[in-house]
Design a protein around this nucleic acid. Structure first.
Lengths: 208, 208
DNA sequence: CCATTCAGTAAACAACCGTTCTCCGGCGAA
DNA sequence: TTCGCCGGAGAACGGTTGTTTACTGAATGG
């Protein structure tokens, strides 16, 4: 009874992953009120309730932890965007769906969103690069989704990437604006929708 | 010979302003490789070559210094944008002029640009708010400049602000992209131009 | 000329930091 | 059952941090 599918239970490894996750969680909480470059190793372990030296069993330093946080925040998001932009619905419906997706993300994972917006231009180089790589990958996915739409007939690949970059940038901007907005952020959502609609209009008349 | 115009020489106050400026300059240099929330008071005074306690003669803490840096970076920029967007030239010329203005700003004041992009969503609340206020003010100026253009006939004030926000956001984005770009950043400038051109196209067809 | 203001100095404070080294004790495999 | 592995604990290190208190000496204004 110890060969469920791929690997054994691993009581040892399970506990290790549990502490690692606790470190990531507490770090993310602490990062709501400061930047990564000022986050202390001891600060995190104290919040978890573990010895400072235990930190080294999981991460080299706080920058390394930051890179892991980037993957946690953006890694599990890759299919989602294509789904919102793909097939069914006209332009307006797709935009509403996209903004709704962003609003959901902000509501369910506010700390992750704040972390990405904050560290995208932050003071820790490896984390900046990790976020840049992930967002560039997102832009490529968005461009691929655009390429499958009939509105993109005649578009060069360069222009598609340019448009996708515009989209990704403003999705991050809209998410950050929704974070700062008090209340339900209805006005912020409305502004984001109109901005995307304006971009969509520009897209329709690009080939003139 | 001591009544030139408004105030006396002020050897005393002149020296004070000189050290204050040195503190701001060295802080800005140190902030190229870290965020404000990790910038230490002693770190700055050491770089200037002054006692740590002298810091308190000019700023309450590093956050206060950060707010002063915001004003230094964005305060002396208010007329410039309206000039680039105003009167003469068609849409394409205005866009080229705007991107050129951003490129000049990045070339002449790279540290200021980096600071604004980094701390806009950074971990220090008063600085975040100061940047937010300044950028909102910029958006209002841009909206006012747009309102003076014939293309804006029939636009609501809300929509003008929405468009101006889109512009300001992407000017910051373009500036940051130019910073990260190696070489002369010709590709980054080209992308910024095409993105603004697409937004401009959407603007022309907004009232349909 | 003399009293006052005040930018900058010097020393000391407790608190905190990242990192190293040594040790413990339970899990995992033979 | 035995033995090696390894996640975590504990203590100690040299160094840095923000802040306070008391002091100096030159520019200032009557």
């Amino acid at each position: 009874m110890s060969h469920t599918s791929t690997a054994a239970t691993g009581v040892r490894q399970a506990q290790k992953l549990k502490t690692r996750q606790a470190l990531l969680d507490e770090a993310l909480t602490l990062l709501e009120e400061q930047s990564l470059s000022s986050l202390g190793l001891r600060e995190v372990t104290r919040a978890v309730g573990v010895a400072p030296t235990a930190f080294y069993r999981h991460f080299r330093d706080t920058a390394d932890l930051g890179v892991a946080l980037v993957e946690e925040a953006l890694g599990s998001l890759h299919g989602t965007i294509g789904t919102a932009l793909a097939d069914e619905g006209d332009a307006v419906v797709r935009i509403d769906r996209t903004v709704g997706l962003i609003a959901d993300l902000v509501r369910t994972h506010p700390a992750h969103v704040r972390f990405i917006a904050r560290e995208r231009h932050g003071g820790v180089q490896p984390v900046r690069e990790a976020i840049g790589t992930q967002l560039r990958l997102f832009a490529q996915e968005v461009a691929a989704a655009f390429a499958r739409q009939p509105e993109s007939r005649g578009w060069s690949e360069e222009d598609l990437l340019m448009l996708a970059g515009l989209y990704v940038d403003h999705m991050v901007m809209a998410a950050s604006a929704l974070l700062e907005a008090e209340g339900d952020g209805e006005h912020a959502r409305d502004v984001a929708r109109r901005q995307l609609r304006l971009v969509s209009l520009g897209r329709q008349h690009w080939l003139d």
